[in-house]
């Protein structure tokens, strides 16, 4: 898309981040760069602070020390207006969608649009329709309440809401957890398609090895209170025992066997795949 974006400064830059809960240290001097328009998967064992890291980036939690820069701005130093402006530039998909249960799907997507734009009512409806279609929801879903939807549909609705303001970064917290393998594969396809169509940067917490192989350009592994980043091939050469177990365990090998090679995916990047 924008050719010079990949050489520019990273879109998210984390330096010497430390997180502590009481005496328990979660992150210590963690450094991580996330580049524009990449899909980065964040993996790690339970309790390594994947969700905590994501919550710290978006400002739902405070870190003990260190620096988190998003679009070159230190998130801790922002005033309210700056923080709100920043929040409009990213979208967040929570694990089970976190839809407002008293609103229909269409009204859920409307919330950020109503709050942060001056679109007329009619145009807002049209934009909502597009977002729902982009998220792969059937038109009938628009007027349903979250409790009437399946888990997969709720995730798609949550995704439509996350995309409401056309964010530049999309944060996903375990997008395929709780979906059946077919639904999970479809969701992976959808994320990949949206990333290409809208030029998104995607930061995705996941346990799903298939997702990593299918759509992630790079993988960040949280291990030993730090993070190791690289392509899967590069990570395979890491001596870290957790990484070795993760990628070379039976599930890791199975996922590697069935996945298209990353090179192949790159070649097909511009294909106009349908949902």
């Amino acid at each position: 898309m924008d050719p010079n974006s990949d050489n520019g400064a990273p879109i998210i830059r984390i330096r010497e981040l430390s997180t502590r809960f009481g005496t328990q240290v979660i992150h210590e001097n963690l450094d991580l760069d996330i580049r524009a328009r990449e899909v980065i998967g964040v993996v790690g064992g339970s309790g390594t602070g994947k969700s905590v890291l994501l919550r710290e980036i978006v400002g739902l939690m405070r870190h003990a020390s260190g620096r988190i820069e998003v679009f070159g701005q230190d998130t801790a130093a922002l005033d309210d207006a700056g923080r709100r402006a920043l929040q409009r530039r990213w979208g967040l998909l929570f694990q089970d969608g976190a839809l407002f249960s008293s609103l229909t799907v269409a009204q859920n997507v409307e919330v950020p649009l109503k709050e942060h734009s001056k679109l007329s009512r009619a145009l807002r409806r049209e934009v909502i329709d597009i977002k729902l279609a982009l998220a792969g929801l059937p038109p009938e879903a628009a007027n349903k309440y979250p409790s009437e939807l399946s888990g997969g549909m709720r995730k798609r609705a949550g995704l439509a809401r996350a995309l409401a303001l056309d964010p530049e970064i999309l944060f996903l917290d375990e997008p395929t957890a709780g979906l059946d393998p077919i639904g999970a594969a479809r969701f992976d396809d959808l994320i990949g398609h949206l990333q290409r169509a809208l030029g998104l940067t995607v930061v995705m917490i996941t346990h799903d090895l298939d997702s990593l192989y299918a759509i992630c350009d790079r993988v960040a592994v949280l291990t030993g209170k730090r993070v190791k980043v690289g392509t899967i091939e590069a990570l395979l050469r890491e001596p870290d025992p957790w990484i070795q177990d993760y990628f070379n365990g039976p599930r890791g090998r199975a996922a590697a066997g069935t996945a298209k090679g990353p090179g192949e995916r790159k070649a097909g990047e511009r294909d106009e795949d349908n949902l």
């Binding site: 229909t104 269409a106 409806r125 049209e126 909502i128 329709d129 597009i130 729902l132 279609a133 982009l134 038109p139 009938e140 879903a141 628009a142 007027n143 349908n274």
Partner: peptide
């Protein structure tokens, strides 16, 4: 491609 209008709210 995403021009699929949803039914209006009842």
């Amino acid at each position: 491609k995403s021009d699929i209008p949803c039914p209006p709210p009842p």
